[in-house]
């Protein structure tokens, strides 16, 4: 367990419902994430974890309910939505680094184009962040020249460069070769320790135990269980969570 959350809510979802056609992918989801809190979301494939994560910066719209970030309801579209997204960092399973830009440019694009920072200042900060995630010496390469683990760390630096209030991670290590998973998890663990508010979709139990304040278990579009990692892993209450855990732990 890391630095305790302050208790003041930063992200609030209430009564959120979403459908993909006939599929009721998010069902009456209520979730409050406190400033500084690290929430790990786990659950079987197709349970709606990615969708939940993506509604928080409105990469997916919702059909019912309300989502607020730092007290502000998510804008529908336009400039206000873009401004809100700039405060919410996102790290994707497939990295999604800008393929035609150098590593350094990947990290400076947001600060320069969205925040209006000067180029020199943005580059200075970008180099600090790249050093922090351990890829400072790769700054002038293009993404394709880096390993998956390095690319994902750059993606984290790119998100951090915006000084986000909260960071969303959607299975950040699932596309990585096993030997690269730890280097990414270490960066994430240190972020958690520094007090970043994080929502992390992952099956990495080690990370959940080490860094999470809370584990949220989803099944079929619902939040079925929400408890601290120790309780969740040792004494899950719902049958579905027990079933899920027995599968992945025996695995």
């Amino acid at each position: 367990m890391t630095s305790a959350a302050t208790g003041e809510p930063l992200v609030e979802l209430s009564g959120v419902n979403k459908w993909f056609g006939d599929l009721h992918v998010l069902q009456d989801v209520d979730l409050t994430i406190a400033r500084g809190e690290v929430v790990v979301v786990i659950g079987p494939s197709g349970s709606g974890k990615s969708t939940l994560c993506r509604t928080i910066n409105r990469l997916e719209s919702i059909d019912q309910g309300r989502i607020t970030i730092d007290g502000t309801p998510l804008p529908e579209e336009g400039k206000a939505l873009a401004a809100l997204r700039s405060d919410v960092g996102m790290v994707f399973q497939s990295f999604n680094l800008f393929a035609h830009k150098t590593i350094l440019e990947n990290v400076t694009l947001g600060p320069v184009k969205v925040r209006g920072k000067g180029k020199a200042e943005a580059e200075k900060r970008a180099r600090e962040l790249l050093d922090r995630v351990g890829v400072g010496h790769q700054a002038d390469k293009v993404p394709a020249q880096l390993s998956g683990g390095q690319q994902q760390r750059v993606a984290i630096a790119r998100a951090l460069a915006m000084d986000p209030k909260v960071m969303l991670f959607d299975e950040p290590t699932s596309a990585l070769d096993p030997e690269m998973i730890n280097e990414v998890l270490e960066v994430m663990t240190s972020l958690a320790r520094d007090g970043m508010t994080m929502v992390v979709v992952t099956h990495e139990m080690g990370f959940a135990r080490r860094a999470a304040n809370r584990v949220v278990f989803m099944d079929a579009g619902r939040i079925v269980e929400s408890s601290d990692p120790e309780t969740f892993f040792t004494a899950p209450t719902s049958d579905r969570a027990k079933d899920f855990l027995s599968k992945i732990l025996n695995h």
């Binding site: 401004a83 700039s86 405060d87 999604n96 680094l97 800008f98 393929a99 694009l109 947001g110 969205v114």
Partner: peptide, 12 residues
């Protein structure tokens, strides 16, 4: 994913 990453950064 490229456009998504751009939008997620706050680009219009």
């Amino acid at each position: 994913g490229q456009a998504e990453a751009a939008r997620a950064l706050g680009l219009g």
